[in-house]
Nucleic acid binder design. Structure first.
Length: 586
DNA sequence: ATCTGTGGCGCG
DNA sequence: AAAGCGCGCCACAGAT
């Protein structure tokens, strides 16, 4: 016999034999990577000593659910396995009740910012198994799994390999646990684990997109680009060669060629960045900027983007990298749904299917509220508690003039620039550039700002000083970013200081948003509410819901986002703006 | 033909 | 073009 478990009794007997284990490791083998097209073949789980191999097609959801019932379940790159499990067994798995930990995320948390002190680089299980358990994993065997349609086609060698992955994952996590505890990372690991289920659901369900509406928007950008290109040909007509079709032979995508052609027109620029082009005021430079604007849309959000629409679901299923940034932020790719133009109509092309709605919810001024919490500044705290306009209040204190919707809006804009710049560790020179004022004026503004808000100055200064001293910056959930290797690589102190100031703020925002995702997922499932996440953009969550429960879903979104915020930010409310509509808004 | 680094620019 | 943080994608340029 092949030793495979094919029924509920077999799984129950195995679970009984590992009842006292502190956690179980789990892995799956699939016929491929796409949960909508491929099959789950095998579920392997167990401990370092013993592993069960389960024929995934032979057991039901409730049987698989029992694996998760009494144990923390550890996976390497959990989102992938959870996605395959959810696609195979559906809601009956009740993953919202599962406790998950991920060895890959654990390693990212432990190494964040550090080049590994080992010879082996990367976060693959093979690497961790060798590093933590001295195990050699032969990943070449896995090639044989692709395209296999039944678990009975797996050879004994392949089954052995599958079991060894469980053993390795278990041993790796056992060792990681000690380090995670030592570094105070267990809390953030738990947040990541809970969020991994939400990420699996998010990737599996995907985002709904109106392809025809998108194409229409794209066509506008295409014609804008073509028109701008004609204008470019005119501008550069005298200094460029002609092609056979009445245009120039200039490659407008080449910065080098653009700079050369501008020079022939008597304009010498240091860069082709938009700000530089516009500042020159030269008509040819302005034409380049105009062309770029349209062409950016055409190239980034054009055919390559639409090619990501899934042939089976008709939706976009991007990859969310839960720990994509050193700060703990999520990143997104294939396609990136975190950089869709916000002022344009493209966001409105994300449209709920018939009978459904989209909820767009974002934290209002998240980073400044986190700064209020961390610094304890009384004006910041009072303003946020009252629901006041912080930028206006800051402007009034700074400029001693009334600032509101009707009076002195330019002063509010200045205050806003300082408020946001501070979070990034901006200095006087940066502020001068931002506001277009002289350096000495920017210096005076910053001085006045810190006189008015000494606690902000003290917090930012002390936070960065401590971080540089410890060689590590930390968020409110205990997520860490080690600065030591950056310093060794020769990053200057100014840059290190800015990173040290920003990481705890940006990273705490990430902690909160991920906790909100996890709680929201659980609340929808436990409440039997037909609603799920379709996008996450740093301080914003987009949820799709059945029309009949959309208002209820919206209330849950707001409640869970606020409560997740309150977990860390206690002195001011983490207010949420939420909108219910047919499309992604703002 | 494919890889890597860079400039530029979309987002928070 | 930058003494303002964090991403991913496009196109080019130079390398293999």
């Amino acid at each position: 016999m092949d030793g495979l478990i094919r029924d509920r009794a077999g799984v129950a007997a195995f679970l009984e034999s590992v009842r006292g284990a502190p956690f179980l490791a789990l892995d799956t083998e699939t016929s491929g990577l796409d949960p909508h097209l491929e099959k789950l073949l095998l579920i392997q789980f167990g401990t370092a000593e013993k592993q069960a191999l389960v024929d995934a097609q032979a057991v039901d959801a409730d049987t698989v659910r029992s694996i998760f019932r009494d144990h923390l379940v550890v996976m390497h790159n959990a989102t992938f396995d959870l996605k395959m499990l959810a696609a195979t067994y559906g809601d009956a798995l009740h993953l919202e009740e599962a406790q998950i930990a991920d060895t890959q995320n654990a390693e990212k948390l432990l190494r964040n910012g550090r080049k590994t002190d080992h010879l082996l680089q990367g976060f693959a299980l093979k690497v961790l198994a060798e590093r933590y358990a001295g195990m050699e994993l032969d990943k070449s065997i896995r090639q044989g799994f692709f395209g296999i349609q039944s678990v009975t086609d797996l050879s004994p060698a392949e089954l052995l390999y599958a079991a060894r992955d469980v053993e390795a994952t278990w041993k790796v996590f056992a060792r990681q646990l000690e380090e995670l505890e030592r570094d105070g990372l267990l809390k953030v690991l738990a947040i990541e684990g809970a969020a991994s289920v939400a990420f699996a659901d998010l990737e599996l369900k995907g985002a709904p997109i109106d392809k025809e509406a998108w194409k229409k928007q794209l066509d506008e950008a295409k014609s804008g680009s073509a028109q701008a290109r004609k204008a470019l040909d005119k501008e550069f007509w005298t200094v460029a060669d002609r092609d056979l079709f009445g245009g120039t032979t200039l490659n407008y995508e080449s910065d080098e060629e653009i700079l050369g052609a501008l020079k022939k027109l008597g304009l010498t620029l240091e860069s082709t960045r938009r700000e530089v082009l516009v500042a020159s005021g030269h008509p040819a430079a302005l034409a380049v900027a105009e062309y770029r604007e349209h062409q950016k849309i055409v190239s980034t959000y054009g055919d390559a983007f639409l090619a990501f629409i899934h042939k089976k679901t008709g939706r976009l299923h991007p990859r969310f990298n839960a720990i994509g940034a050193t700060t703990g932020r999520v990143s997104c790719s294939e396609p990136n749904l975190q950089n869709i133009p916000s002022g344009s109509a493209f966001r409105a092309c994300f449209r709920a299917p018939p009978g459904r709605k989209l909820i767009t919810a974002d934290y209002s001024g998240a980073e400044l509220r986190i700064l209020a919490e961390a610094s304890g500044d009384p004006v910041f705290i009072d303003t946020f508690r009252r629901g006041g306009d912080l930028h206006a209040i800051v402007a009034e204190r700074l400029f001693k003039k009334p600032v509101n919707k009707h009076e002195n809006p330019e002063l509010r804009a200045r205050a806003k620039a300082i408020n946001f710049g501070l979070v990034y560790g901006m200095g006087a020179q940066g502020l001068a550039n931002q506001l277009g004022v002289r350096l000495d004026e920017a210096e005076r503004l910053l001085e006045a700002y810190f006189r008015a808000f000494p606690k902000i100055r003290d917090y930012l200064g002390e936070s960065a000083r401590q971080a540089l001293k410890r060689g590590m910056a930390e968020t409110m959930a205990g997520r860490r970013f080690w600065l030591t290797d950056l310093r060794r690589d020769g990053r200057d102190e100014g840059t290190l200081t800015r990173i040290a100031k920003n990481m705890p703020i940006q990273g705490t925002n990430a902690d909160i948003t991920k906790l909100a995702m996890a709680r929201m997922y659980q609340a929808f499932r436990r409440g039997g509410v037909d609603a799920f996440l379709v996008n996450t953009v740093h301080d914003e969550l987009v949820v799709e819901a059945a029309e009949s429960v959309a208002e209820e879903a919206k209330a849950i979104v707001i409640r869970e986002m606020r409560s997740a915020g309150a977990e860390f930010v206690k002195r001011v409310p983490m207010d949420v703006d939420a909108q219910l509509g047919d499309t992604w808004t703002k």
